[in-house]
Amino acid sequence: MSPRAPGSPQARTEARWGAIFAAPALLLIVVILLAPLAVLVALSATDYRLGAIAVRMIGLDNYAAMFADPVFQRSLRNTFLYVAFVLPVAVFGGLGVALLVHARIRTRTIYEVIYFLPVTSTLVAMATVWQFMLHPTLGPVTPLLADLGFGRIDLLNDPDFALGTLALIGIWQLIGFNMVLFLAGLSAIPRELYEAAALDGARYGADRFLRVTWPLLGPTTMFVTVTSTVTAFKVFDTVVVLTRGGPLGSTETLLYILYLEGFQYFRMGYAAAMTVVLLVFLAGLSILQARVLERKVHYA
């Protein structure tokens, strides 16, 4: 933008209209973002419960209680397990599907649509469908697994399998999203690079992948990884619909117990402390992502 002389009529107009245009957004930022954030941090140092008359400052007691709480520890462990399971499959699965779909010409659109369907659909509705599909007596999955020799497993009610089942549904929802991001990355690779590689002697698929595809997808891969981590970290809908944290707390995740503490038991101070922990995780990931996006520029 061209710098304008301060005090010129144009500069005064811009200053006035800029302020007018920005005011509503700024107001919203203060009311919806900044003020709640300040309240949140303050709240995390109190024993506030919704409707309570007296509020006491208790310093870091909430945090101490939280990290000593086996439920919180379990939810943290469950969440990380969930992320650890979803992340590699959703990222490399998405990459694999994108590579295969990208090579198709006539059938490309059909595959794209089918793999992307779960992304646009309402997860709560589709989770009820999954629940029905996984129903031990009425759904098709249990008999199918039994026929394959796995025995009759009630995937959602078995503590050994429930979290994994949720993760599979998470992958089911995420893989098409990642596929589309990878497809965009793949189409951005100039065809001439593959041709140059062909002339240079890259005769094997492995050579083309390692010399061209993988390095040029680097920024996309980082982006997809961070995004998938954030999404997996915030797993909530499927827990509410399918397991409510059970069986035996095996699917209690961070966001789910935060929801319970804050909005079911109304232990606001404690939940606020938990939210601060969540915020730290997500902010860390966001900073990582910002770094990645900066790096992306270098390649252009």
Binding site: P190, E192, L193, L199, V212, P215
Partner: peptide
């Protein structure tokens, strides 16, 4: 044969 492309097609990484 060797080829020089219009976009040079250098490996950016």
């Amino acid at each position: 044969v060797a080829m020089v492309f219009q976009s040079y097609a250098l490996y950016p990484h």
